[in-house]
């Protein structure tokens, strides 16, 4: 039938494009992770779990994965910590210009990553804003070196970049809480903090989890912040992958580590989706 033909001719270009330039590349690194390398570092097609064995036996790889995971949890936690008061303020305290403020928190999402990362170089550098300010104010008498090119600056930058990703779902969750519930809690004698702890926080938990998951997953896959702001010892797992595809040129191993990152991310997303679902179903039951 004609409608049938129309439907598929509209879809076909996208489907073909995604297949060739997205799905097959993803499949290919999965396959490539089973390839081998010869002594000159050349990739040889084959089926071997050598790369995975190397990834698991060398603490550089498996250790870095876990260290990155810990950093990611820390970043997610800090982002949530910053997002809660921001979202709470806009959702419950601000009366006018809410849309403007919402725009203000979502705007940085779209502003160039490199610029936002670069800003921290100016702020945290040895001769940067913070150090010169501290000296100017006579709080320190010489520059604090570890502000920049350290794990500290990397984490600060990631928290800065990812906070809007976390604040938006939390704000949305806050806004979706019926105002009547909050008024009912107050009516029954709960103070602001009790209302937050007993009503707002539990009801917004799916949003908080979803925001935190964003930060977690994005940190796991980030290689630019450590590259730009990290020190000699700052190593995130993505930098290892980047090196394996670059200077070290061990693509099978790089692919294997990449696949491990993906699996870990799928695991995190899966757990998050399940707990969000469980929490939202609880919520609708109690209504």
């Amino acid at each position: 039938m004609k409608a049938w033909l129309r439907k598929y001719s509209l879809l076909l270009p996208l489907v073909v494009w995604l297949l060739v330039f997205l799905v097959l590349p993803y499949c290919f690194i999965f396959i490539q992770s089973f390839f081998e390398t010869d002594s000159f570092g050349k990739t040889i097609p084959g089926v071997s779990i050598d790369s995975y064995q190397r990834a698991f036996s060398n603490s550089l790889y498996i250790g870095t994965i876990f260290r990155t995971l810990i950093y990611a949890v820390l970043v997610a936690f800090l982002c949530i910590l910053l997002s809660l008061p921001l979202a709470y303020w806009i959702a419950f305290k601000v009366k006018r210009n809410k849309t403007l403020l919402y725009t203000l928190i979502s705007l940085p999402l779209w502003v160039s990553y490199i610029i936002r990362a670069y800003a921290w170089k100016i702020i945290l550098g040895k001769e940067g804003l913070l150090n010169t300010f501290l000296q100017w104010a006579h709080i320190t008498d010489k520059p604090v070196e570890y502000f920049l090119y350290s794990t500290f600056s990397t984490i600060v930058c990631l928290v800065y970049i990812l906070t809007p990703f976390v604040a938006i779902p939390i704000y949305t969750a806050f806004e979706q809480i019926p105002k009547s519930l909050i008024e009912a809690a107050k009516d029954l004698g709960a103070g602001s903090f009790t209302t937050f702890r007993k009503i707002i926080f539990p009801l917004a938990l799916p949003g908080i989890i979803s925001g935190g998951t964003f930060a977690l997953v994005l940190t796991m896959g980030d290689f630019l912040s450590p590259l730009l702001l990290g020190g000699p010892n700052t190593l995130f797992i993505s930098n290892i992958v980047q090196n394996l595809f670059g200077t070290s040129n061990d693509r099978p191993l790089g692919s294997a580590v990449g696949i491990l990152i993906l699996l870990l991310i799928f695991l995190i997303l899966g757990i998050a989706a399940r707990s969000e679902k469980k929490l939202s179903s609880l919520k609708s039951d109690s209504r």
Binding site: P25, Y26, I29, L218, F245, S255, I261
Partner: peptide, 11 residues
């Protein structure tokens, strides 16, 4: 993660 997409396309 962009890194995986990047290396997948590169390969």
């Amino acid at each position: 993660p962009g890194i995986v997409t990047g290396v997948a396309m590169l390969s």
